[in-house]
Each structure stands twice: as C-alpha cells, then as structure tokens.
Design a protein around this nucleic acid. Structure first.
Lengths: 191, 191, 191, 191
DNA sequence: AGCTAAGCGAGACGGTACGTCAGGTCTTGAC
DNA sequence: GTCAAGACCTGACGTACCGTCTCGCTTAGCT
C-alpha cells in the first residue's frame, strides 16, 4: 500500500491542498481555517482531504515539514557557533511564520500530535545537531564532557518561548547571545 | 464596574464555576471542555459565565492564576540556587497538570491571550525573580554583570519546552542541572 | 411538558417553517428539498428544525395535516353519496397537490411513518366516515349488513392509486362512478 | 444501441447485479441500499452499473419485472373469479416482498418512474386482465355492460393500499371478499 | 416586612463547522 | 480493450457548540 499512497499524495492534488492551506493561513489564524475552506481553495472535495489526513493538524505538520526542509541543514565547513546561530535564526523565522504559528497551535491542542512531531521531526534534527557537535569536538572546537541534551533544550526552547509568549521572533542579537552563553562553558579558546 | 465585579465574581458562583472547570479539565482536554459543560457542572446558566468571562481561555487563565499563587513565591532566606530550583520544580508541576496544559493550549490558540498572559502573569513573576537575583548580587552570591533577561528565558523556556514536546515534566535532576548550568558563569565560589 | 411544547411549536416560528416547506415543495420535489433550504427560507437555524422534528417526513406530515384539516369534514344534513363524493374530491385534490405528493413519498420511504400516518390520521378519519355511514343506516339510506372496512378501502384506495400511478387526480366523473359503484349494493331505492 | 444492450445486459454480469440487489434488499430497505453496495456484492465496478442503468429505481423495476413474470398469468380454463383471486394473491405477495416494497418506494420517489412503470408494466397486465374479462363475457360468466377500467382500479388499488398503509399484505379472505364485491353487480347466476 | 430591580437558571435561538456518507464521474492498471 | 477498483467532486446529512437572547424566578438591598 505504500507506493499508491506516495503516488497519490504526491500528486498535484496534494500540492494544491498544501498550497491552499498555506494561502489560508496567511489570511486567517489556524483555528479559523476550516477544512471546507481549504478544500474550496484547492478546488478539491472535502472528503479528498479527509481521505488522506485525519486532522487539520496533520496537514499543518506536513506543510511545515515541506516548507522547512532546509532549516536544519548545516554547512560542515563552518564553525559550530556559526552553524547553530544560522540554524536558530532560520528556526525563529520559520516558527514566527504563519505556518509555524499554526503548527504550534496544532501541537498544543493535542499531546499525541506534539509527541509525534517531536519523534518525527524534532528528534531527527537533534540527532543531526548532535552529529555536528561531535564533529566540533573532533575538530577541537569544544570540549567533550557535557550534557548535550540539556544544551539542545537550552538552545531551542528559548526560541519557541519567544515566539509564543513575546509574540515575536527573537532578534539576531538575542540569538547570538544565546549561542554564546550556551557554548561558553565548553568553548576552547580560539586564539 | 470594579466593585460589582469583585463583589460578584468572588461569590460562591465564581468558585463553583472555576471548580467545575477544574473538574472538567481532569476528565477532558481543554478543547473538548465546553462552556455548556462547565455551566451544567457548576449548576449555573451559560449566560452567567459569558457575563463575566469573554472566552474559555480567560476562565482557564483565572483558574491557573488562582491555583498557582504560591508557585513563584521565594524564601529569601535561602540561596538563589535553591530558590530557582524550587520555583522551577513547582512551575514544572503546575504546567504538567490538567490546568497548566489547558493554559498552554489557550495561550497557543490566541496570540493576544498569550501576550496578555505574559504581561499579567509572567512579567510580574520575572520581576520578582529579578529582585531575587539582585538580592543575590548584593549578598555576593553571583556577579552583577549579565544579561538577566536571557538568563530568565534560559531557565523558564526549557520547562515549557519539556512539558509541550516531551509530554512530561522535567525530572528534578534535569532542573538541578539546568539551574547549575545557567548560574555557573556568574556563580561566585562559595568557599 | 405539554404546554411549553405547544407554546413553542405553535409560535410564529412553527408557521414560518411550515410555510417555508410549503414554498419549497412548490418548487422542488420532496427528495430535493433539504432541511437547510427550509431553514434558510424560514429565516431559522437548521438546529431549530431538528429540535422539534426528527425527520423531514414529520414536517411534511404536520404540514399536510394542517392544510387538510377540513378535507374530511362532513355535512350531516346531506346524503351519504353527496358527502362521500365531496370528501373524495377534496382528498383527490389534496393528494395531488405538492404537499400530498410529498406526503406519499415520505410515507413510502419509511414503513413506520406510513403506519404512524395511518394510525394518527387516516384511522380517525375512517372512524368519522363510519359514523356517517351509521347515520345513513339509521336514516334508512343504506342497509346495515356490509363489510364497511372493505368498503372504505374500496373508496379511498383508488384515489391514492390514481394519483400515484396515473400521475393525476381522478376526474369528478370517475369519483362519482366510484361512489355509485361501491354504494350500489347497499343503496335503498330513493323513490 | 439495442443489440449491445441485449448482449451485455443479458450476460452473467446482469444476473450478478440483479441478484446482488435482491440480496441487498433482503437485508436493508431500499433507501439504504447503495449502488456501491450492489456493485461490491456483485463483484462489479460501480461504473458498470451506471453504464446500463441510470438510477437505482430502474434496477429495482427490472428486478421486479423479472421476479414477477408469472404473477399476472392466467389459467384460461378457470373462472374469472378464480383467476382474479389468484392473481391478486400473487400480486399481494409480490408487493409485500422486499422487492415489491422497494419498487413502491422507487415509484413514489419519482413521478416519471411511476408513470413509466404504469406504461411498461401495469398497463399491459391490465390489457391481459381485460382480455380475460372479455373471455368471461363471451362465456356468459358476466354481463357486458360495465366500466371495466374502474373495476380494475377497484381490484388492484386496495392491494397496494393495504401493503403501504396497513404494512401487510391483505389476507386471502379479504381478497376473496374484494373480488366477490366487485364482481357481484355483473355476475350471472351460476346455477 | 415588603418591594423592586438585579442577577440568575434554563434553554431556545440563528449560526458555523464538523466529519460522514452516497451519488455519479473519471482514472488507472491488470488481465 | 475491457472493466474492477476506487479516487474524486459534490452536496446533504445530522450533531455539537458557539455566543446571544428571552423568559420567569429568586434574592438582595432599600424603603
């Protein structure tokens, strides 16, 4: 059943639906975007959407994934500090967008969805980041002894926090300070 | 409008309504709790609720405030580390409760509400915490030069993050490590 | 609970809804009239209709009853033949109307509804007609020995049959012939 | 279009579809039997059904015709009374069956279909019955002067009426009484 | 103690969106 | 080349809540 699933959902219809959702979220907040509205904008029947996605939140997650594919990409030729700063800036931008905000509402509304989001999306990206960190250790940029999971939380959490409670993405100065603060304890002097 | 507001909302009716919401949230997630349900549980007409609260989210915020009054209280005779650790633990517990989760959904669903929540609730608590920090500086526990706003974010954000994405409150070990990590750069040796 | 029921359903809203159904049935066949359409025409919410009537068919039955109240009335000063002929003509007219046709569809679609219709509506009218017959017997118009139930079927059934299968109400000549034929065996000579 | 029609519709596919409808109607009332259900039961694509039949009602009519072919057959060696009684009994049985009830719903739902049914099915059968009546006249069983169309209505209509409104087929006693009553005025004494 | 205006419960109301379902059309892949 | 399988668009269904409203009935608080 996998091939037809891929076949059909990756058709032009899938794109039309995701684009429709994108458009709708530009105009209205997540809670006011209805499945019916999305269907109409996509020129698609409501049941076509329900056939492939159980909830509006799944649609949002899929849209977010697709539109933020490159957010977590690293440039391994650059330093850890640079990479983390860049990534957090792109993440800030993504979360503060119409899609990112919708995603956060969707995640908040349903524990299972947020768990799924973490498992499917955030965890793999954390793994990548951990890989980058290990590379930095090998390169001698940072020291090896540290609670890196806590470190990741300390990097990512404030970004979400800012977007949700301060209602805006953090400034680049803030992000730079954040990265600097978190990396300071393990940073090797770069004389 | 203030006197009657206080008069009426502080009556047994107000309590009945908040208790009804509390009960309802124990059984159902925020999104599935309806105003009608709350009214029935409280033995109260729907319009009585709408008379005093515009949105379900306001009700939740009020309930959260009432039930977490002591969460941010400090014991100024104790050390900064101790106070922060205790506070974050109580915060973790509160956020991971049925009420805390409801609050976070309510905040996510509406930017204005989350801004309001920050202004009304979080900011004052941050001020208190800053006061505690300044006390610690005077006491010589920590050094004075620091971006304390960033520090506060770094303390509070991971707690929210854990509850939302890990679907559980952080362990006390985690919180201790977090506080230790954040305070390390400014901690004076306590010989 | 009876008074409020009567109170509310006999309000101007009830009339608006029945009138809306009446209007709709003039334009569209029963199966194409939707509850939503009725609600819109009546300037009423869909749920108001569902609150009082379980099915579209109940609405139609109620409308039919209201609009055919006088169909079965007799003029006891007139002869049996006259009364039956008049009644069958009015019945023909009622059944061949937009409302009557809708009623017959509604009855056909659901055995329980047709049984209910018979019990609530047709049977009482048959009782009246039987009373008329007994009066005619006392008056000496007809003889007493007869299977009057069969007689009633023989009178009413062809009317329905004509409307359904011939797609038109029977002519007055037809009705007169029908009554004459059915009454002939028991008619006393009217010298 | 006629040859392929005959060709294909008389194939095993046609039988499979009609049998599937038959089966389905045994389990569910007409309104709840869907084309999709029929197609699945028949192991046939939905479009195969739509290719040959425009509406569910046409399918039902075709099924009814096929399964009631002998209902109107006469035994010309027997009396008119006998033949009519037998025919009405078979008709009662047919109409009260799952297929007959489905047919009546289908007819009620659409005026054109009921007119078509009358033209295609009932009228030819009435012709046959009229032929039988003329034979009886020739045989001297009955007198010639009569409104035989009205007579046919008086015979057939009460059968439909009983099935629809009394929710059951008439008893054989009822049918015998009916035939007797209708024939009485023109019956020649059979001393 | 009685009067009167408010607050109140109850729940009907006009709406909106839901998620399901069946109708009828169109596409695809296997045989 | 035919046809089953089933995706698809459409539109009605009946439900659930929304937030507003009207209606009598408490029930204080003032006379």
């Amino acid at each position: 059943m996998n091939p037809p699933d891929i076949q059909l959902k990756s058709s032009r219809r899938r794109d039309a639906i995701l684009n429709a959702l994108d458009d709708a979220l530009r105009e209205l907040p997540y809670s006011q975007v209805t499945i019916e509205d999305i269907a109409n904008r996509a020129g698609v029947g409501k049941s076509t959407i329900y056939r492939w996605w159980k909830h509006k939140s799944e649609l949002v997650l899929e849209l977010f994934k697709e539109r933020t594919e490159t957010v977590f990409d690293f440039d391994f030729s650059q330093s850890l500090t640079y990479n983390l700063t860049q990534q957090l800036m792109k993440l800030s931008y993504s979360l503060d967008s119409h899609i990112g905000r919708a995603l956060m509402v969707a995640m908040a509304e349903n524990r299972l969805h947020s768990a799924e989001f973490f498992r499917q999306y955030l965890r793999p990206r954390r793994e990548q980041t951990l890989a980058l960190i290990h590379l930095a250790i090998q390169r001698g940029e940072i020291s090896a002894q540290y609670d890196f999971e806590l470190m990741l939380d300390s990097l990512y959490a404030p970004i979400h926090y800012h977007v949700v409670f301060f209602n805006q993405q953090p400034t680049s100065a803030y992000i730079e300070a954040l990265v600097k603060q978190i990396l300071a304890p393990i940073q090797r002097s770069t004389h």
